[in-house]
Design a protein around this nucleic acid. Sequence first.
DNA 1: CAACAGCGAGA
DNA 2: TCTCGC
DNA 3: GTTG
Length: 597
Amino acid sequence: MKRKSKEALLLAKQHKAEDETHEPPPQFLSGLKCHVHPANFGLMRHKVFESHITRYGGELVPSLPECSEGVFHVVFEETVDEEKVKRLVDTARLPNSVFLRCTWLIESIKAKAKAGTQSHLILSMNSVEEQCRGTGESWVQEISWTQVEETEKSHIKDTDVAVTKSESQRNENPDMKDASARTTACSASHEQREDMGSQKSTKETKEDKIVEDEREPEECSRDEALGNKSVLHKWGAGAGEEDHLESLIRPFPKNLQDKFACARPSSSKPVDLNTHITSELSKLAATYKSKNDTWRSVGYERAIAAIRNYSKEITSREEALAIPGIGGRLADKIAEILESGRLRKVAEVCEGEEAETLRLFLGVWGAGPSTAQAWYLQDFRTLDDLRTKATLTRHQQIGLKHYDDINSRIPRSEVAEIEEHVREATLSLVRGAEVMVCGSYRRGKPTCGDVDVLITHPDGQSHELIFRPLLVRLRESGFLTDDLVTQEDNGNQKKYLGVCRLPGEGRKHRRLDVIVVPYQERATALMYFTGSAHFNRSMRLLATKKGMSLSEHSLRAGIVRQGQEKLSDGYMLDTPTEESIFAHLGLEYRPPEERDH
DNA sequence: CAACAGCGAGA
DNA sequence: TCTCGC
DNA sequence: GTTG
Ligand SMILES: O=c1ccn([C@H]2C[C@H](O)[C@@H](COP(=O)(O)OP(=O)(O)OP(=O)(O)O)O2)c(=O)[nH]1
Ligand SMILES: [Mg+2]
């Protein structure tokens, strides 16, 4: 009973807070049955609108009945047109309902009174025939007063809505107190879509400007909340010694350093001795991720990685608890697995239609947890539903088209073939280029999720000549079949994400990532592209803790941070090889196979 | 109670 | 800005 | 989820 919908809770709390400092919200929606259709709404925006329905006295209809004589106000995202509405709901079976753009709600909130529906109407079965035939039901009546506000468009900005949105967005943390959530939101600046109307509030939006009366007294004094922790001076720098690397890293306690995954080899051992545990926890991690519970999922994944690298078989709760990354709650779960062989929690949250559908939808490249949930809310259950009814981005269309291929693993041998294909094309363009496959392939995995190719050139310049011509060539030969991201510019580095297929019969489409990098950045780029993702995050975190910063471009020292933000960029360290990066960070070198965290 | 990596692109 | 991906 |  602990958690449920934290976002909803948050919204409720915010409203409650407002109500304490203001007169109760006008109940101008009372008596109205309202449904917010999830189509094209972001998850958060959808929740925000739903919360407004109840806040202003409306009866929220969480899911629309298929067939009803009832009068429902169905609110759609502003870009949804009549065609789309008809595709999404069987309008003929809801003869008395009104289908409106969400601008109706926005305007109503702004006016603190029910706005006319006319100017926000997308479709109404009745109105098509004769506007005034309704049996004196609410919506029909409104139409008459519609004109009143009709002309008044929305120049409004619903900062109220906007703020709530960003607030909930940042606050994906499980049990975060709303106080801190609001504090965080204070610093958020907004420039929401024009059509997000507003009225009052403005909450935190611009504390520099209109400090709205209705702000919570305590909440937005975010000054102290955003205290300053200068991470740096804790170590070496505190002594104000030279800015040298050595002085920066040496004072770092070794026992602390051991807590970082990147400091230890990943179990290059044949198998995982605690599979029974990790497999169960993995299910939970994936499910939490699909539910947008990011940090809980991250917590699970870290623990899983820790268990994988634990050399012995875990036999007791105590033993588990001693492993860094495993706390009381996970230790309990492990204990349950140890004695019963299973976890009730898994059955509870991982099984069932919702979790399975979300997993299905997450397999669509370009669809993440938010989109998957939004689709589920729209009653989509199959890939065919997505194909025929959903609004798909270009990426998602491609992801759907190649759903099976993209979600199947690639044998090493085929990766090698693809590497050779790309190398050949590259070398035919520029002699002397270096082409290598990184990612899971370089880490020695037996199968790979995609092919990550890194290209550079020792002359330090030719890399610039490679990118476009290579893509053109591979495309002309029919090797590249779909482009996802054709050019991601990251400083001097360029990245391509797409889909390819080797010539010949019976070949699958494969995801291909190519980065072309300047020679000076080859080592950091190689580190990055070799991963694993977990390993990278661990190493980057360690770098941060040492007052440095590691990215695919460079390793920098002398970084000064205040909280998140960097006050000083520091200076770049020389990183000719991967070994040098480990050395700068005070770590023992790990070959790629040992970075598989 | 804040942090949990550090990037760029598409809509 | 939000969402997604590497 | 766990950690400092
Ligand atoms: O969030 C991420 C994802 C990836 N990477 C790096 C590490 C990773 O090894 C490399 C390639 O990414 P990919 O998604 O292909 O991971 P992989 O390690 O190659 O695994 P897979 O077999 O699924 O492709 O990019 C990151 O730094 N952060
Ligand atoms: Mg890969």
